[in-house]
């Protein structure tokens, strides 16, 4: 089973890079098979049968929110950079997260980095350290509500 998953991943990446003509299909199959035989000693992952469903959910539910937040973040940066005296009130806050898997934490940290005014610095266990341009909340709960709540809801629904 591990062979098949590795083969599919390599083949899809090859096709995206090379194109969809018939020769490329055959050559891609051969190259991916050879690479699979070589690489299968080094890959070590457990197959998750729910993964395609998770991926579809991820693309259709998570990405629109993410792109909207990215736009807002950029307008925020534009406002800050172009104003003559830069408004700043920076600080490093700590936030607890409920997500368990590594992939969920990676997605959460990346989306926190790309949302308005925040930058994730370090992940340790289940707490994230985040640099914010503008510290508003008084305690940990308020910060959590402001920064990571919308993403945690969506990602928690997808990755558990």
């Amino acid at each position: 089973m591990k062979y098949l998953a590795t083969f599919i991943v390599l083949f899809v990446v090859y096709l995206f890079l090379a194109g969809f003509t018939v020769y490329e299909l055959i050559l891609g199959g051969i190259v991916s098979a050879a690479l699979t035989v070589i690489l299968v000693k080094y890959v070590n992952f457990s197959i998750d049968w729910q993964f395609p469903i998770k991926l579809v959910k991820f693309i259709f539910i998570y990405l629109p929110v993410f792109i909207w937040k990215l736009l807002l973040a950029n307008l925020d940066v534009a406002k800050r950079v172009l104003s003559p005296k830069i408004p700043l009130n920076p600080g490093i806050v700590k936030i607890k997260t409920n997500l368990q898997g590594d992939f969920g934490k990676l997605a959460l940290a990346n989306s926190i980095t790309l949302t308005p005014g925040t930058l994730s610095i370090d992940v340790e266990g289940d707490s994230l350290y985040i640099h914010t341009v503008d510290v508003k909340g008084k305690n940990e709960e308020e910060n959590r509500e402001r920064i990571s709540e919308p993403f945690e809801k969506i990602l928690g629904g997808i990755f558990k």
Partner: peptide, 29 residues
Amino acid sequence: PIGSSAIAKATYRSNHIPTNLVQDDLAKR
């Protein structure tokens, strides 16, 4: 984002902490 997070962590650990922070939870760790 991973690259920028790596730089931020390295900056923090190499004692180049900016002086204008109003709150610093990472120091209490």
